[in-house]
Every structure is written in structure tokens, then in C-alpha cells.
Nucleic acid binder design. Structure first.
Lengths: 216, 216
DNA sequence: CACGCAGTAGGGGAGAACCCCGAGAAGAGC
DNA sequence: GCTCTTCTCGGGGTTCTCCCCTACTGCGTG
């Protein structure tokens, strides 16, 4: 294969410089961006093979780029690059469509290898991440807010949503009360509100409602 | 790294021979099995680093091996090997705990590379598979292998199964009684039997049990 | 025929669920 | 300051769940 055409998105100048020099001569760097909006425009314009994408950026982060470009240029593959190995971050970008996720402590050679693999269609994960990404998958994807707006869910207050999750899992009022360190009566109160707002009549319907929305 | 210790499970003699010669000198082959039960025993006994596991085998398939060994030897990593690239197969083994999945048309060198990567903790997928595995993840995989014979479900009488379905949908005893034209007390009676036989304690667990088996 | 099993049904009770009502504290907004 | 929402908590009551127990009927098997 020829050198893959790579686009680099990161808001840290230093990191871009480091990556640029590590990858010099190994891949074809077709552009860089240091913020979300510019990244989206340039990626769509240049259609690189692989986008090296920082996860944490002002203006929506890497997920925003993935969403925007994914529709316009589905052939562009994304390799998420992050200092974080937090499960939520990883899962969020994977769900948004990234084909790989590596942390920034990998070597230049490993990064190059990862880019070639992603360009070839492989999925690439750092060893430490592979485990829980697949675990999360095998357990069944936990939900991710990240954007989608649910008018019904939005009616609920934060506390009500917390209570809802326990109830939908089959916890009794008493269990939830212990879990949240409040009175069972308060739990009851929240559940009543939830049932009323969602126009449901009992906890079984609530369980179904929640599981349809993948809140469990 | 030293050569990883590899165990090979496949019911086709020809394929085992092929793999054996391809991997000779590259990895340390510590054993082989051609059927599920033997595979489970030998893997647990020998604790290899990586198990090369055929997906389609009589006696439960690779998933049965994954399940049985996963509990006893959680450190053993599995690389699923299959002629099939059907989404259901792939997803089933991933959910059962496999750390990788490659099809049998890969080269010996690629297979060796995949084994080393899995041994190191990486997740490995054939290019063609990486896409939809991650797609399934991002959409949220909700596939189940077809339920063949279910010993737990078999314990239940016809009537108990009828009642179970209503209860799992959130019907009250009274509702079910009306539906089946019997007394609520009889419904209660059946539910008690079901809970006892399945060793569950309440209707919520029953709902989960039923939905896992697609009885709704 | 005796026995076990599936299906039917009821009594009684402890605890959970769900409903009505009211009410105080804390914070956000006009 | 006043209001509105959220979160908190209680009393009191009805219904539902789940458990214990007993008991009758019909049906197939040894």
C-alpha cells in the first residue's frame, strides 16, 4: 500500500509537532487543524484515508468531528488519540464511529503501525483499552448521552433519572433509598413523579420504557 | 516477548494440520482438541496464553468453550477463527469474551501476528470484520444465538409458560386471570411454581429471564 | 388401584408498590 | 422580596406481590 493520507486534529500545538515529526516520511500528512469547525471543513475537502483525532477539544471534542464528517465522508476512517483512557471517552468515540483508539503514550512506530492498520480497515486499540472496550460490548453497550435529545427523558430532573435507573433494574424503594442515602418515602415521591411525567402506571412499564431507551 | 503458548481448537483435522505447520517455530503450540469437552478440560489444565478457537463445532461451538473456560481461567485469551464472517457469529463470540476474530483465509504470517497481538492484550479483527463489529457496538448489538433446547424452560409446564409470558410483560395476577379465564389465586399458584423452579425471587427477575430468552 | 403430576382454587399474612394529602429547605429567577 | 422548582420527608390508605398452607379434580403410569 502507498502511504496513507493522514489528517491530524489536535488543539495542542506541541502534540501536533511531535506527531508530525514522528510520522514524517512514514505517512503522507495532508493537513492539520486545531479546532473542531476547521477540522470538519478541511477533512471533508481533502478526504484523507485516516484522521488522527484528539478526543478532548473545545467546541464539542472529537465526537463532534466524527459526527459531522461521518455523514459527508463515510470512507474516512478515524483513529482516536487521547491522553485519557477513561471508559466513557473511549466508548463515546467508538459509538460515534471511530475505528480505533490509542493513548498518547505510544511510540511513533506504534502509532504509524496503528495508522496503517486503520487505513487497511483494521480496528486498533491499545492493549489496555482492548479489554474493557470489548467488555463493554459483551456486557451490552451502556448508553451515551452525547447529543441525542429525548424530549421525554428531558422532562425528568437529574434526581428522577437517578432513581429511574435503579427502579428499572428492579430495586425496591428501600434499596434505592440506601443507594442514594435518602428516605424510602423520598424515593417513592420521585418514582411517582416519573410515572406521572411519563404517563406510565407501574414499575414494569418503567422497566420497559428504560430498556427501550437503553438506559440500563 | 517469548513465543506465546497457543492452544488450538478445531474439529477439522486438515485445518489443524495447516495451522500447525504455518505456526511451527513461531509460537509454542501446547495442545490441540477437536471437540468441545476435551478442549475445555485441556485448556483449563494447560492455561495457554492464547486459544485459537474454531467458531463452528459440534457440541455447542466455540461459544461453549469460551463460556466454560472463561470462568475457570480468565487470563486465557481467545482468538476466534472461522470460515464465516456472519455478523451473528462474530458478535456471539465477542459477547462470550473473545478478544479477536479472524477468518480462515488469512495468511500464516497474519495469523501469527494476530496471535502475538492478542497475547499482548490487543483486540484483533480482520479488516472486513472490524467495520461491522464496531458498527454493531455503536448501534448496540442485540443479537442472540438461536435458543435450541433450554433445560430451564423445559422444567415449566405449558400453563406455567403461558402465565410466565403475561407476568413478564407486567400483567398483574388479576390481569392474567382475566386473560386466561381462571382465578387470580391460580395465577399466583403458577407464578410461585415458576419462581421456585427458576430459582428467582420476584417478577422483575422473571422479566429479565424471559427477555434474555426472547420469550416476549 | 394407588401414586404422582398438572391444573384448579382458597385462607391468611408480611411486605412492597402506588396513591392521596401536606410541608419544610434550598436555590434560581423576576 | 416573592415565586417557582427541586429535593426532601411524613401520614394514611388501597392494591399487588409473594409466601405459607390446604384441597379437590382429572389423567396417565406402574
Amino acid at each position: 500500500m502507498n502511504q496513507p493520507r493522514v489528517f491530524l486534529v489536535d488543539d495542542h500545538e506541541l502534540i501536533r509537532t511531535g506527531i508530525r515529526s514522528e510520522l514524517a516520511g512514514v505517512v503522507e500528512l495532508v493537513g492539520e487543524a486545531d479546532e473542531v469547525a476547521a477540522a470538519i471543513d478541511m477533512i471533508i475537502e481533502r478526504s484523507p484515508d485516516v484522521v488522527l483525532l484528539d478526543v478532548h477539544m473545545p467546541g464539542g471534542g472529537g465526537v463532534a468531528v466524527l459526527r459531522a464528517v461521518g455523514d459527508a465522508r463515510p470512507s474516512v476512517r478515524f483513529l482516536a488519540l487521547s491522553v485519557s483512557d477513561a471508559a466513557d471517552d473511549v466508548i463515546a468515540v467508538i459509538r460515534a464511529g471511530a475505528r480505533g483508539y490509542v493513548t498518547k503514550n505510544i511510540s511513533g512506530a506504534e502509532l504509524a503501525d496503528a495508522i496503517y492498520r486503520v487505513a487497511a480497515g483494521d480496528a486498533v486499540f491499545s492493549p489496555r483499552l482492548a479489554g474493557f472496550v470489548l467488555d463493554a460490548f459483551s456486557l451490552e453497550g451502556r448508553h451515551l448521552e452525547a447529543g441525542d435529545v429525548d424530549p421525554e427523558l428531558d422532562q425528568l430532573t437529574t434526581r428522577e433519572r437517578q432513581v429511574l435507573r435503579f427502579i428499572a433494574r428492579g430495586y425496591t424503594y428501600r434499596d434505592v433509598a440506601v443507594e442514594l442515602a435518602i428516605s424510602p418515602k423520598t424515593v417513592e415521591s420521585h418514582v411517582s413523579s416519573v410515572l406521572r411525567k411519563l404517563q406510565l402506571t407501574n414499575r414494569h412499564q418503567l422497566s420497559r420504557w428504560a430498556s427501550e431507551r437503553h438506559l440500563l
